[in-house]
């Protein structure tokens, strides 16, 4: 019979240390909810906390639901971020606006790769430098894109050297990307394709940034099915009647579910192999959990 993996022992409570926490993972794994949960958890531990989001802020708002009072929800918009970044180089917002309102520059700004990521990360750096929040949780885009984002400041530094923008790239990297300054939380699911992508993400993170994830969250894990069910279905599946046929179909379903439990174990093993600081699982619920619920799960450190 397939090996049924029982729920892992409760993980020890974990503590994130760096002021900036980047949350990423494959799309649709519950990244935003975990990010919001981490921010709320920090707030409940007595820290001032902010959830930073780059899109239009809808995803964060949905994850937070009514839990907005405990943390700040910061939505960073590209156009404004770019003006702010230029203003800090030029020492004047008026001059910065003059540059971006120039026709050709405006067109370049809309079409040139990486500038958007650079400006948005600079806003995170500036926010961290203000020391207004003790914990800044950043909801990054999904896996591949997230790594590309984090490599942008260094690329600007190399390419623009000792110019103001090059130095800005250097500061961003030093202050919010370099090991020790930021921690990365990777969210994954117990599904083969997702685990595979997580593995690739962790590998690239190590080779390209020299960073191991501080925390791996295996989201939406299911409780293992009762052990006897497989044997029962197996036993019934040998008969030639309709019951046998039904049992054979059920067997396939049970086996697929057992594989999911194996995938959870695999994700845990993977996280340890990648030197993740902590790994934990969160339970599957019929409806999307709210961030305050996730914060509670994170605090208990318990596995699903």
């Amino acid at each position: 019979m397939p090996s049924i993996v029982t729920a892992s022992p409760p993980a020890p409570p974990f503590h994130l240390k760096a002021p900036v926490v980047f949350v990423t993972g494959k799309g649709g794994v519950g990244k935003t909810t975990v990010a919001a949960g981490l921010a709320i958890q920090a707030a409940r531990a007595g820290q001032t906390a902010a959830l930073v989001e780059f899109d239009d802020g809808q995803a964060g708002a949905r994850a937070l639901g009514r839990d907005v009072s405990e943390i700040a929800h910061v939505v960073v918009i590209y156009d404004k971020a770019l003006v702010e970044a230029l203003a800090s180089v030029l020492g004047s917002r008026i001059l910065a606006r003059a540059i971006v309102s120039q026709r050709a520059i405006r067109r370049m700004v809309r079409a040139v790769p990486a500038l958007r990521e650079f400006a948005l990360l600079e806003r995170v750096r500036a926010l961290a430098a203000e020391h207004k929040y003790q914990r800044i949780v950043v909801d990054l885009p999904s896996s591949g894109h997230a790594l590309d984002w984090l490599r942008v400041p260094k690329a600007f530094e190399r390419f623009l050297g000792n110019s103001p923008l090059g130095n800005m790239g250097k500061s961003i990297h030093r202050e919010i990307v370099a090991p020790g300054r930021a921690e990365i939380v990777v969210v994954t699911l117990a599904e083969p394709l997702v685990v595979k992508e997580t593995e690739e993400l962790c590998r690239r993170m190590r080779s390209e940034l020299g960073i191991a994830p501080a925390l791996v969250v295996v989201n939406r894990t299911v409780v293992a099915d009762p052990e006897g069910a497989w044997s029962a279905a197996k036993e019934l599946s040998t008969s030639e009647d309709g019951v046998g046929a039904a049992a054979r179909e059920l067997l396939q379903i049970i086996e697929a579910r057992a594989e999911q439990a194996e995938d959870t174990a695999y994700a845990f093993g993977l996280a340890r192999a990648m030197d993740a600081g902590h790994v934990m699982s969160l339970p599957d619920t019929p409806n999307d959990p709210v961030a305050s619920q996730v914060a509670q799960w994170l605090s208990s450190g318990a596995s699903g």
Binding site: L86, V89, L90, L95, A98, I99, Q102, I105, F159, L160, G161, N162, S163, P164, L165, G166
Partner: peptide
Amino acid sequence: WGRSKVEALVGKVVGLEGLRN
């Protein structure tokens, strides 16, 4: 005058080397 001002500002932001590239 406005254009050259913008040009000079761009140079100031990315540096001469960056601007050349």
